[in-house]
Design a protein around this nucleic acid. Sequence first.
DNA 1: TAGCTTTTGAAACTCAATTTCATTAGCGTG
DNA 2: CACGCTAATGAAATTGAGTTTCAAAAGCTA
Lengths: 141, 141
Amino acid sequence: MDRASVFNQYLRTKGLKNTRQRMIILETFLASASHYSTEELYQVLRTDHPRIGYATVHRTLKLFAECGIATELNFGDGQARFEPLYTDHHHDHLVCTRCGKIIEFIEPRIEQLQREVAQRYDFTVDSHRHELYGRCINCSQ
Amino acid sequence: MDRASVFNQYLRTKGLKNTRQRMIILETFLASASHYSTEELYQVLRTDHPRIGYATVHRTLKLFAECGIATELNFGDGQARFEPLYTDHHHDHLVCTRCGKIIEFIEPRIEQLQREVAQRYDFTVDSHRHELYGRCINCSQ
DNA sequence: TAGCTTTTGAAACTCAATTTCATTAGCGTG
DNA sequence: CACGCTAATGAAATTGAGTTTCAAAAGCTA
């Protein structure tokens, strides 16, 4: 089932409504280069849909996270960011502190070690954050 | 060189002043169980030093981070937290989302894999964040 | 289509972080 | 030690992302 269907089904089961704004935001969000903050997505939407309000964008992104088609990220710049979630391959992030570029990486051995660590402390992990900050190849001199 | 000396030397080289407030905040911060938010440290200080203002606590914690004796953490609860930095053993965190308990863990094999990942993308790492969120042993049913 | 419920969007509000600014306090020099 | 300069302090104001409010508009179900 694709992410649009997941979202629509989530709306239906929760008794929420399938509105024009939500569909436009969903479409734009899924089509976009990911890692948008609310403000950034709002600015992108303004071009073609100037009547859609910031609060609606914000609430809709929260809904995406709730229903599992997006994850909320925070890279320490004081703005929450969202990315479409691909359930079939978990990844973490390299964040360039100069140009803002975000690189996704997959490293199953790290995931495995995380499970080991959690077990060591009798800890039940629900989620994790793992980001490396520094310079991407273009920004290192 | 201990952390108090590092801070004092930092003040001197930057032409900043060694004030009563800064010394009190430093002492309380180093003596404390770590991972204080600004607000929490401010509340602790209020007991014995009610004249020290919130802004001063905030500015002083930022100074600690600047001079390298503390690191700024963010566990997604909307408040920055600070912990005294021990340069001799880097660690990451397990964060209990129910009781707020914070467990520090060390796993050199994860550090090593991080270096591998960075190399894979020609990325120069300056810092990283790695936190596992879930339930500690007391909070899992 | 009616009637009920949710959504929208503008504006207001929240809350931590940060800045402002007049007063106070370090600190180097004479 | 006092002078004078500079930085620090603390109360209050400001910022900015996030969230809530509320009257009007729109979706949904019968």
